Simulated assay, not measured.
Amino acid sequence: MSLQIQEVPAMSAPMELLLLADPSEDKVRSYFPRSKCFVASNGEAVVGACLVQPLGAGAYELMSIAIQPAHQKSGHGTVLLKWVIDFFRKSGASQIEVGTGTFGYQLAFYQRHGFRVTAIDRDFFIKNYPEPVFEDGIQLFDMLRLTLRYTADVA
């Protein structure tokens, strides 16, 4: 069965799923007022979700993207990310950005889809989360900012 992706009101976003990508419920909820929310479904089951916010001047930020653990490594994350990239390209965006940890599969995931590191937000995870955030047993300190710039020849 193919993945169906649709926009839903941000307040209807599947919180338990989004918390897989960002451990702070308060932080995720703070994204809702300005975000577009997209959910990916396989039949009746929601398998993925993401939140995207406008930054201004044709730029958007992917605030959160997550796939249910049972559906990870099945290509659903790639389908959702490519769909979001295409959606904003078609809407006239000039770029889409994302922030992620300095290592791990997420970094490679974004880079495989054309995102390039454009900045380092030093001590982001220390300054913005009350509890330490760990990835693969290693504490995250800095956030890498990655950007995908759209060009006229992108199909």
Score class of each variant (00 low, 15 high):
77 G>Y: 00
81 L>K: 05
92 G>V: 10
77 G>M: 04
64 S>N: 15
82 K>A: 08
91 S>R: 12
68 Q>M: 11
83 W>R: 00
77 G>I: 04
66 A>E: 03
76 H>F: 15
86 D>M: 11
81 L>F: 05
64 S>W: 07
74 S>D: 08
78 T>I: 04
78 T>G: 12
79 V>D: 02
82 K>N: 13
66 A>G: 06
75 G>D: 06
62 L>K: 06
65 I>N: 02
78 T>S: 13
70 A>D: 08
86 D>A: 12
79 V>R: 15
65 I>S: 02
78 T>R: 14
72 Q>F: 05
69 P>R: 05
90 K>T: 15
68 Q>H: 13
71 H>I: 04
89 R>M: 11
89 R>E: 13
77 G>W: 00
68 Q>N: 09
80 L>Q: 02
87 F>M: 13
69 P>T: 08
90 K>R: 15
62 L>Y: 05
88 F>V: 00
70 A>M: 10
66 A>H: 03
74 S>P: 06
92 G>S: 13
74 S>I: 00
72 Q>E: 10
81 L>Y: 01
87 F>E: 15
70 A>K: 12
92 G>N: 11
76 H>Q: 08
81 L>E: 05
86 D>E: 15
62 L>Q: 08
82 K>E: 15
85 I>D: 01
69 P>C: 05
79 V>W: 14
82 K>S: 10
88 F>L: 06
64 S>D: 12
71 H>N: 10
68 Q>L: 11
89 R>I: 00
68 Q>D: 13
67 I>L: 09
66 A>S: 11
73 K>D: 06
67 I>H: 04
85 I>N: 04
72 Q>I: 03
81 L>I: 01
64 S>T: 01
88 F>A: 03
71 H>P: 00
90 K>A: 12
75 G>S: 06
77 G>H: 04
87 F>T: 15
63 M>G: 03
85 I>M: 09
92 G>T: 09
66 A>F: 09
74 S>W: 06
72 Q>K: 03
86 D>Q: 14
88 F>M: 07
79 V>L: 13
69 P>K: 04
84 V>H: 01
